[in-house]
């Protein structure tokens, strides 16, 4: 029987909770990538020393309780309305860093009008669009982002193009809008992609602070519970099935580095 050695004195922590993400246990399922997305956003808020001027707007879906996890002022919007509510906040608090955090049912379905027109007006807000191709909170129904043929509880025989249409690619759509300044898609399925996602989050916040227009970072995410997969298999599903349907990339960036103040 081995005996653990006593801890080394004066150990320096090299990895801890960001200030903007207090140590609160989350309600997310094992293997869900919401935790990664939350952490990346909180790290960037810390790095920008923006905690005291950040206001978040939570949506309806699995991230309905996002306000519990971030150590910043928060509002909890009606389903799909976060971009409208964030518009109200940002217009009267232009000095604040304002972001929404929305899933694909919230943003691409019931909130399609609100997200589109926030972009049209060039609202100086940042949208984090967590796309896992399914309704998580209500137990796995089809979303506008559900892949063709993907089975869900409301497309039990698989999504059928003839009666259910096919995937709605919001980043590509919003990139067409003049008011959008920065629209990119990243993924959270491996470490390299996660690091790229964090850079995009930072860039989106910077573009907001430079007042260049609407910014959105779409994050391809997993839902092991409703996909009926192990967490590891779910990450593989993002890589092998979602990325081909939702190509990663920059769909809209400020025209010049100088313009972005980079």
């Amino acid at each position: 029987m081995s005996v653990l050695a006593p801890p080394e004195p004066a150990l320096t922590p090299v990895y801890s909770y960001p200030d903007a993400l207090p140590h609160v246990p989350t309600h997310y399922c094992p293997g869900c990538t919401h935790g990664i997305a939350h952490r990346l956003i909180a790290e960037v808020i810390d790095e920008m020393a923006a905690k005291e001027r950040t206001i978040g707007v939570a949506s309806v879906g699995c991230s309905v309780f996002a306000y519990r996890y971030f150590g910043v002022d928060f509002a909890q919007a009606a389903h799909g309305r976060a971009p409208a509510m964030a518009t109200g906040v940002k217009r009267v608090r232009p000095e604040a860093l304002v972001f929404t955090y929305q899933g694909d049912g919230d943003l691409a379905s019931i909130g399609a009008a609100e997200i589109l027109h926030a972009a049209v007006r060039g609202e100086q807000i940042t949208v984090f669009f967590v796309n896992n191709a399914i309704y998580g909170m209500t137990g796995g129904q089809m979303a506008p982002t559900t892949l063709l043929g993907q089975t869900t509880t409301s497309s039990p025989a698989g999504r059928d193009r003839a009666t259910m249409g096919t995937v709605l690619r919001m980043s590509e759509l919003l990139a067409q809008v003049d008011g959008a300044a920065y629209v990119v898609r990243r993924s959270l399925h491996d470490v390299v992609q996660i690091k790229r996602a964090k850079k995009a989050i930072r860039r989106a916040f910077e573009v907001q602070e430079q007042g260049l227009g609407f910014t959105m970072v779409e994050l391809l995410s997993s839902c092991p519970t409703n996909w009926g997969m192990t967490p590891e298999a779910a990450l593989g599903y993002i890589r092998d099935e979602m990325v081909p349907a939702f190509p990663l990339g920059d769909f809209k960036v400020p025209e010049t580095r100088a313009e972005a103040g980079a």
Binding site: A77, V89, V92, H117
Partner: peptide
Amino acid sequence: VAAINMVYGAAAAG
């Protein structure tokens, strides 16, 4: 729908 939710946001901001 959007107008009242904008009001909600501005009201939340005080």
